[in-house]
Amino acid sequence: MRSPLAEKADSMHWSVGRGSPRPTLRQLCHDITRNWLAYAFVLPSMAGVFAIILVPLVQTVAVSFKRYYILDILREAPPFVGFANYLTILGDPQFRFSLWLTVIFTFACVALTMLVGLFVAILLDQDFPGRGIVAVAVLVPWVIPRIASSILWKWIYDDQFGILNHMLSSIGLRSFASFPWLARAGPAFWAVVVVVVWQSFPFIAVTLLAGLRTIPREVYEAAEIDGAGFWQKVVLISIPMLRNLLAILIVISTIWDFKVFDQMYVLTEGGPAGSTMILGIYTWMMAFGRLQMGLASALAMIMFVLVMAVTVLYLRLFMREETM
């Protein structure tokens, strides 16, 4: 769905067609000189990202093929073990359990975060007295120091003195008087989902609000003339126009939520009895619990491949062709 004009602009000013399917070195130099402006724009961010991170990433790959027990490395160079670490991880029942748990966890977190974020963004896009206060208040969950807020949530969920049980039982739900939220597998899992959603919805809301603000008002006015109602405008105009932004946010949230660690560690430490051990916790346990960096790196690589696959698939499906 590209406008003819954009297509024309592409061919005229903005882009250079790819050369032969197998570019020679000369072709490559040619490409680079012809696109120098593009590379000049992009270079700082590429350099910034890779100057620092490239070496660690390559090392992670290398370590994933070694038996790298941290306590052994001062004495001997870690031996190369081929794919042994990968086989160990893939064969570990705990990994398979954690993987499924993490998939469900990620899906739940992303879906709820996006819904709440969109809801709040739409709310903040309205004009009403006091809007400014809400706009600032919404940021609070995001800016509270994470160490403090996870502890605060643990207080809230506390079975004996938690405000949550206190409120539930004072509105008549007596069975919640000392409900152990964090001592049961299901409730503990969802309790952490709530905390993650709570901490991440402000970012989504702020970004989507910024996106909503860039939609020209005329579009809505035209729709109103056609008799569109409030939700029709949201579904038929706002969401389609924010499609790219939504796609980016979903991708990035998926990447983040797939490796959640802090909140789960503070609230449940993967318990009760390992029932909330998502991959973030499992990786930490391999890395700094068991000090097996080889296994941890192999795990990180597996996670990387999975997330990358999902990301590419997602971008292919949902992003407009020309942007990717």
């Binding site: 004996q160 152990p180 001592a183 318990g271």
Partner: peptide, 21 residues
């Protein structure tokens, strides 16, 4: 012992002792 003590640490039992339960 309280039902939730399955996952309690000392931080929880301290709270319980402080609040006289």
């Amino acid at each position: 012992s309280p039902e939730g003590s399955i996952t309690w640490s000392v931080l929880n039992s301290r709270k319980a002792f402080t609040t006289e339960t």
